[in-house]
C-alpha cells in the first residue's frame, strides 16, 4: 500500500513540477496514439461499413479475418513491422525503424481491425432494410455513406474509444519498432517497462497513473459526446 501512495504522490509531483521529460513522453504518447487512431479510423470505418453493408464472395472469410486480427498481440504486430522496416527489410530504405512513425504504423495495424470490427458491429445493429430506404430516398453514394455513418455514430464513437484504448495501452509493438529511445520514441508504456527494470517502482507507478489519466480523459470526453442528448430544433 505504501508503494501505491508513494507512486501516486510522486505522479502528482512529477506532473506539477512540470518535469519536461514526463511531459515530452506524455505528449509523444498522445500524438502517436492519437494519430494512429485517426489513421485507423480513415481505414477502418470505410472497411467496416463496406463489410457490413455489401454482400460479396469472400465476405465471411474477411469478417473472420478482421475478428481474428482484433485480438492480434501487439508484440506480433511489432515483430512483423520490424521485419519490414529493418534496414535489410523490404522497406528498409525509408529509414523508419526506431522512429515515432514506425510506432504509428504498428499501432495503425493494431487499431484498424478493432475499428473495423466495431464499425461492422454498429452498422449491423441498424435495421438491415435501412440502407435500402436511404437509397430509395434518393441519396447519392456519398450521401448514402454519410447517412449510414450518422445513424451509427454512437457505435462509431465506441470504435474510436476501443481503437485508442488498444494503442495507448500497448507496449510490445512500441518497444519492438520504437526501441524506447530516450527523447525520441519513449512513450508512456515503454517508459514504465524501463522504470520497472530500473527498480524505480514509484516512478513507474507515477507514469502508470499519468497513462491511466490520459486514457480516462480521452475516453471520458468521447463518452460525453456519445451520451449527450441530441437537442432537437424545429
Amino acid at each position: 500500500m505504501d508503494l501505491i501512495w508513494r507512486g501516486l504522490a510522486r505522479g502528482v509531483k512529477l506532473l506539477l513540477s512540470g518535469d519536461p521529460e514526463i511531459y515530452e513522453i506524455a505528449f509523444l504518447t498522445l500524438r502517436v496514439s492519437g494519430l494512429a487512431t485517426l489513421v485507423s479510423l480513415v481505414l477502418g470505418v470505410p472497411a467496416g461499413l463496406f463489410l457490413a453493408v455489401r454482400k460479396f464472395r469472400f465476405r465471411r472469410a474477411l469478417v473472420g479475418a478482421v475478428n481474428t486480427a482484433m485480438g492480434l498481440p501487439p508484440t506480433v504486430v511489432g515483430l512483423w513491422v520490424a521485419i519490414f522496416l529493418w534496414r535489410s527489410g523490404p522497406l528498409g530504405a525509408l529509414g523508419l525503424m526506431y522512429t515515432p512513425t514506425a510506432i504509428v504504423i504498428a499501432q495503425v495495424l493494431i487499431a484498424t481491425p478493432v475499428v473495423t470490427g466495431f464499425t461492422m458491429a454498429s452498422v449491423q445493429q441498424l435495421d438491415p432494410k435501412l440502407p435500402r430506404q436511404i437509397l430509395a430516398l434518393g441519396a447519392s453514394p456519398l450521401q448514402f455513406w454519410w447517412l449510414v455513418i450518422r445513424e451509427c455514430r454512437f457505435g462509431l464513437l465506441a470504435a474510436v474509444m476501443a481503437g485508442f484504448g488498444a494503442v495507448i495501452s500497448e507496449v510490445g509493438a512500441s518497444m519492438a519498432v520504437g526501441g524506447n529511445v530516450r527523447h525520441h520514441t519513449r512513450v508512456l508504456t515503454t517508459a514504465i517497462v524501463l522504470e520497472v527494470n530500473k527498480g524505480n517502482f514509484d516512478v513507474a507507478l507515477a507514469l502508470s497513473f499519468i497513462l491511466m489519466t490520459l486514457a480516462y480523459a480521452v475516453t471520458f470526453a468521447l463518452t460525453v459526446v456519445q451520451q449527450r442528448k441530441r437537442r432537437y430544433v424545429t
Binding site: 509523444l28 500524438r31 502517436v32 494519430l35 485517426l38 489513421v39 480513415v42 481505414l43 470505410p46 523508419l96 522512429t99 515515432p100 512513425t101 504509428v104 504504423i105 495503425v108 525520441h184
Partner: peptide, 22 residues
C-alpha cells in the same frame, strides 16, 4: 477509388507526422 483515397490520406498523415515529430 474511395479505398485508394483512404490509403492516400493515411500515407499523407503518416508522412506529416514523420515531418512534425522527427
Amino acid at each position: 477509388s474511395a479505398g485508394l483515397a483512404g490509403m492516400l490520406l493515411a500515407a499523407l498523415a503518416i508522412s506529416l507526422v514523420e515531418i512534425s515529430i522527427s
